[in-house]
Design a protein around this nucleic acid. Sequence first.
DNA 1: CATCTATTCAAGAGTTTTATTGAATACTTA
DNA 2: TAAGTATTCAATAAAACTCTTGAATAGATG
Lengths: 220, 220
Amino acid sequence: MINERNLKDLLYQEFARVGKSLSSPKRLEILDLLSYGPKSVETIAKTTAMSVANVSQHLQTLANSKMVKSKKQGNYVIYELADEEISTFLESLHSLAEKQLVQVQQIKREFLNEQFGIEGVSLPELKKRMERGEVMLLDVRPKEEYDEAHIPGAVSLPIEELREKLASLPTNCDVVAYCRGTYCLMSVEAVELLQARGVKAFRLEKDVRDWMEFEKKGIK
Amino acid sequence: MINERNLKDLLYQEFARVGKSLSSPKRLEILDLLSYGPKSVETIAKTTAMSVANVSQHLQTLANSKMVKSKKQGNYVIYELADEEISTFLESLHSLAEKQLVQVQQIKREFLNEQFGIEGVSLPELKKRMERGEVMLLDVRPKEEYDEAHIPGAVSLPIEELREKLASLPTNCDVVAYCRGTYCLMSVEAVELLQARGVKAFRLEKDVRDWMEFEKKGIK
DNA sequence: CATCTATTCAAGAGTTTTATTGAATACTTA
DNA sequence: TAAGTATTCAATAAAACTCTTGAATAGATG
């Protein structure tokens, strides 16, 4: 008879390939970034502050366990998540970590609440205010990510642009800024800049995918 | 201003703790086993064919990332999953791996379908047949796991016992056997034994948790 | 109190990861 | 075709991980 141990060993070794993809902080960061849309190796390297060679190596590990796939586009190799399910899976990993690890809660509190006294807005609240035309919604991520997907009604104004054009922006309109979710600080900076100019600005902790989730529930 | 890199580095390091838990085949096997109920270190070591010291070490890694928790009971230390959500999460890891990795599909096919020409039964089918009193449902896992949770109407007959008492079992009744799901071979062996005695026996690929999931959907 | 037992600890060897560096490759574009 | 650019490859050093072995510990039981 076939050895049960044999099956188990083979099987869990395979399962662990997925686990190994998630066992390196850097790889997790890459995966998270890719969940906001396809990116070139160079772009990933720049936004994650890693060397290109290192990113390339990690991407190959990820491709090996079928977490990402790539295609050549012009001079660039564009990587993206191999499957939508992976994005969902990453989210559940985050929520699990947030629930189980006190450390994460602490980091979150320290960096997001205490350090920046920035008022947050909830999704239903945002929707209401937008319908009434009370606020302008700002997507401060890079333009490409906005093009990939954005919250309906949002205006694209990447954080770099915001920094430059700050002086020429109107100040008479309330603003809500969002970026790549809770752990991304671009919207935090945006709100700080705007507030310093006297604009009533708020941060949306949620991101595009949260919005899509939210709308799906509403429609159901 | 606070370094965004700083936040990211800290954060993903924490997230990766969960990933690291899942990056070792042995740890995954332990987690899976624990998803069927609390177990002592010794029991885990025996069923996974690992040394006690090694299991203890892995369990400590897992406890460190808050995947499992332990309590002292008599002479034993009993470990269990720290949270029900972890069980769900493990399942989604399995389904992801099964979907993405051709290897897993191959292993499954090789070990479960080709090698054993054993007819499987689906959950709705099982329910129908049980309601009509046409089949006996056998839970061939260790007694403790049956006590922890089992499919309603199932009879506990651990595989070892089945082996011993085989000769004294009735042969005039159709049987469906189940154990720890798709990748566990105890039910396969049970079916083989029973079939060799001339009993009409079938395998249920699903397990208790699948059943619970199934019932929940039905009730909704 | 002494013994027994399940578990943990500690040290070490062997392997596997990870980031770095510099070169190689493959593809564009002028 | 030649130059340029994005990515990958290859080699290496440092760090982390995994399993084993044998001893230590803590708690239960006689």
